[in-house]
Design a protein around this nucleic acid. Structure first.
Length: 296
DNA sequence: AAAACCACCAACCGCCCCTGG
DNA sequence: CCCAGGGGCGGTTGGTGGTTT
């Protein structure tokens, strides 16, 4: 193949950066700014290409880079933003101070994608996966419960959808005035782990009688809190609840399958999968009804 | 204890788009 | 309109460290 020589052919170094190279790059940028990235390596005394310098600076050496694991809040923001923006990593990164697009992309590919798939959510569309062949969690349920008839499969499917709906955590919350409250939305979206939300999940909710009052909350400051979806979600939640309750009870696969979860917290979905399922265990999850949940 | 396997992540590559001259 | 440079993105690689066999 002909063409321009590769970096290595030009004697340009590749691979991991040494502390010495890092120091040179930082020193130069602190004194002169980066200017033209193409010109920088020579001026800074680095045997690297400009692009490598730029990536090293923006992804690692920049002073405002945040280190460490992603918080639940950051994770939720990424999921929410990805649902509305797709793979716009730089835009997503702009909502997470100190995080780089590359870091977010890696985190998405190694953690979040897997997590969503395990929850039965398509990481591309953020919609529940309906293809049975790809519903791994459902197949786990199937195996767990020894489901062998259409009714139980249907119930498991509905339950799975319900879990997905809860997992999508939504912005559902009701204030004393029966109006969604911004702080509640933010709490739910950004501050509370999913498990906390689950503990307040109502099941015997009434269907919305009319469109929710949500003029002020259509879109959050980051542009991701679409309220129409929340209304839809609430309706869907209600509908699934009705359908779920109308189906016969699940039958435990064996006597050992009758353990009842005593506490479902942050890792509630894992708990659900781990605990050998029984009707009473589902009921425990589903029947946690807050004192006053009405929507009008 | 050692090899094999796996998960994670920094870094790279090639392509594309945008912008300014 | 064309071109060059900068920057963004998807996909991938390779090193490292932890876990399993």
């Amino acid at each position: 193949m002909s063409g321009s020589p590769t970096a290595e052919e030009n004697g340009i170094k590749k691979g991991p950066w040494t502390p010495e190279e890092d120091r040179k790059l930082v020193d130069y940028i602190e004194k002169h700014g980066h200017g033209s990235w193409r010109a920088l390596p020579k001026l800074a005394g680095l045997n690297r290409c400009g692009k490598s310098c730029r990536l090293r600076w923006t992804n690692y050496l920049r002073p405002d880079i945040k280190r460490g694991n992603f918080s639940d809040q950051e994770e939720q923001i990424i999921i929410n933003l990805h649902a509305s923006l797709g793979n716009k990593w730089s835009i997503i990164a702009s909502h997470l101070p100190g995080r780089t697009d590359n870091e977010i992309k890696n985190f998405w590919n190694t953690h979040l994608k897997k997590k969503l798939l395990q929850m039965g959510i398509d990481p591309v569309t953020h919609m529940p996966i309906t293809d049975h062949h790809h519903l791994t969690t459902l197949s786990n349920l199937h195996h767990l419960l020894s489901l062998n008839d259409a009714t139980q499969l249907a119930k498991a499917q509905l339950l799975q959808n319900l879990l997905q709906l809860l997992a999508s955590q939504s912005s559902l919350s009701i204030s004393n005035n029966n109006v969604f409250n911004t702080q509640q939305i933010l709490d739910l979206n950004y501050n509370l782990p999913i498990g906390s939300f689950l503990q307040n999940i109502p099941i015997n909710i009434e269907p919305p009688q009319e469109p929710l009052s949500c003029d002020d909350y259509t879109v959050g400051t980051d542009g991701v809190l679409g309220f129409q979806n929340d209304t839809d979600r609430l309706k869907t939640f209600y509908d699934m609840n009705q359908r779920l309750n109308s189906l016969p009870n699940l039958i435990p696969a064996s006597p050992e399958c009758s353990k009842i979860p005593t506490n479902i917290e942050n890792n509630w979905e894992e708990d659900l999968m781990d605990v050998e399922a029984s009707d009473s265990s589902w009921k425990h999850v589903i029947d946690q009804t807050p004192p006053s949940w009405t929507v009008s």
